[in-house]
Design a protein around this nucleic acid. Structure first.
Lengths: 235, 235
DNA sequence: GTAATAGTGTCTATCAGACACTATTCA
DNA sequence: TGAATAGTGTCTGATAGACACTATTAC
C-alpha cells in the first residue's frame, strides 16, 4: 500500500500540516500559557496556540519549524522543547483534513518579548486555570493544550523537567517552590534535596550565592543543557 | 504567521504525510517486529515499517488511518495502539519534505495473518536483535523503530503494557515471563504478584484454569480493554 | 539579640526484596 | 510417591517521610 505511484499527490491529496506550540511559564499566579489571537479565518478573534505552517523550502526538520515559530512569537531561542504529539482528523480545521504537530516549551516568563505579526492581533499569557479562555480556543486547541498540560503535570512527578521553568541560575529552595506550585502540595525540604541529589543533574555555581536578609543560598545551574533526568520513584 | 492565505497550499507546499507502524510481538526468540519488503522506489527491496498514506477522503482521523494500515497488513483489528511520535525533515524521503506519523502496536503473534498487497513483495517478522536488518531499513525507519523499541522498553519498567503481548486469557506466571523476557532479567514471583495486585488491572476468569502436568493456574484477563496502569515504582 | 531562610542530621514505621514454605495437579 | 509449577507467608535490611536541629545572613 506504500507509495503506489511515483507521483502520489495526484492520487492521495495531502493533508494540511501545521506546527503548534504550548509555551509554558510559571508566575505568581500559577502556570501560564502563551496564546495568540487569530486575525484571520477560520476562528477569527479566538485565542489559539501559536503556530504556523511548515516552510518546506526553509525548515530543515520539524524541530527547526517549531523553533522558528517559537522565536517568531517570543524572541526566545533555546528553551526546553518536547514533542507532545500529532493531532489530525477531517474536522478540526474547516479548510480540510489537517494535522497539527504539537510541541511544548518551558521558559522563564521574563525572558520573553511577545511579538505580534502575521495574522495575529494579540499575543498574551493566560493562566491555565482560566477555564473560560481554555475552553474556547480555536480549532481543537482546547484538547491539545489539555494533553500538553497533562503531559507536563505527569512529568513533574518523576522528572527534573520543572527546572526549565527557572532562569539559568537558581537556588534549591526556588526549585522546590516550582515543584510545589506545579504539584499543588508542599514537599519536605530534606526529602526533596535527597531526591535532587540522587539524579545528578545540577551543579553549584562556585562562590555564587542568592543574597537576602537571611542566610545566603547556593546558586545552581543545569549540568547539561536540555537534559532531563528521571527519578526511579515518584516525588 | 498562521494561515496567511485562504488558499495556503498555493504559498506553502504541503509535505508528504505517511502513517507508519511498529507492530511488536513476543516469541520464543524475543521481541519481533513486522516488516514489509518494498516493491517500489524509493528503497526498492529494502525492509520497511508497514505504512501508508492518509486517505483524506476515507480516514476520519489519524488513528483510523493507522488502524486501516494495521488491518491491511495483519488482519488484526484492535490491539494495543499508541502514538510514538512524528518524524519529519527534508531528507528522509527523496521525493521531498516528508513526515511520518508513527504508531506502535502490541499483538499476539499467532493472531496475525500477514497479508501482502500493494507495492509490497514480502511481509515477515524480524527479531529486533537482528542488527543487520534493523540497521538497513528504508527511509529513517531504523531510527524510528529504535525510538519505538526504547519507548516500549521504558514502559515495561513502570506500566502494565506488556500484558498486550499475551492472548486474552493468561496466567500470572505467563505474564511474569513476558516481563522477564522484555527486561532481560528474572523477577521475584512474590514481589511481581504484589506489584500486579497493587494496580488493579486484571481479573481472574472464574473457574478457568490453565492445565498441565502440575498444579493448574488461574487464568486472568484485562479488566478494561486497552487501559494501561502505571506503577508508582519501577518494577 | 531577633527574624528569616539555608542546609543537615536523626529516628522510626514501613515495605521491597529475598527466600522459604505450602498447595495442587499429573504420572 | 516424585516432579513440576502455582501460589502464599515471613523475615530483615534499607529507606522515605516526618521532624528537629544547626548555620548564616540582615537588621
Amino acid at each position: 500500500m506504500v507509495e503506489a505511484m511515483s507521483n502520489p499527490e495526484d492520487i492521495h491529496p495531502r493533508p494540511i500540516v501545521s506546527v503548534d506550540l504550548a509555551i509554558f511559564a510559571l508566575t505568581q499566579d500559577g502556570l501560564e500559557v502563551l496564546l495568540t489571537k487569530r486575525g484571520a479565518e477560520p476562528f477569527v478573534g479566538s485565542w489559539a496556540l501559536p503556530g504556523g505552517w511548515i516552510h518546506v523550502d526553509e525548515d530543515r526538520d520539524l524541530e527547526t519549524a517549531a523553533q522558528r515559530v517559537l522565536t517568531d512569537k517570543t524572541g526566545v531561542a533555546t528553551p526546553y522543547f518536547e514533542q507532545v504529539g500529532v493531532f489530525g482528523n477531517t474536522t478540526r480545521d474547516p479548510r480540510g483534513w489537517s494535522l497539527s504537530v504539537t510541541y511544548m516549551a518551558l521558559i522563564t516568563q521574563n525572558a520573553v518579548i511577545p511579538t505580534q505579526g502575521g495574522n495575529v492581533t494579540d499575543v498574551a499569557w493566560h493562566s491555565i486555570s482560566d477555564e473560560a479562555t481554555m475552553a474556547s480556543l480555536a480549532f481543537d486547541h482546547t484538547a491539545i493544550l489539555k494533553a500538553a498540560v497533562t503531559r507536563l503535570r505527569n512529568k513533574v512527578e518523576y522528572t527534573t523537567l520543572p527546572v526549565h521553568l527557572l532562569p539559568e541560575a537558581f537556588t534549591l529552595s526556588e526549585l522546590q517552590t516550582v515543584y510545589e506550585r506545579l504539584l499543588g502540595r508542599v514537599l519536605d525540604k530534606s526529602a526533596f534535596r535527597k531526591r535532587m541529589a540522587e539524579v545528578d543533574f545540577i551543579e553549584p555555581l562556585a562562590g555564587k550565592m542568592r543574597r537576602g536578609s537571611n542566610r545566603p543560598a547556593q546558586l545552581y545551574q543545569l549540568k547539561q543543557a536540555r537534559s532531563t533526568a528521571f527519578f526511579d520513584r515518584t516525588i
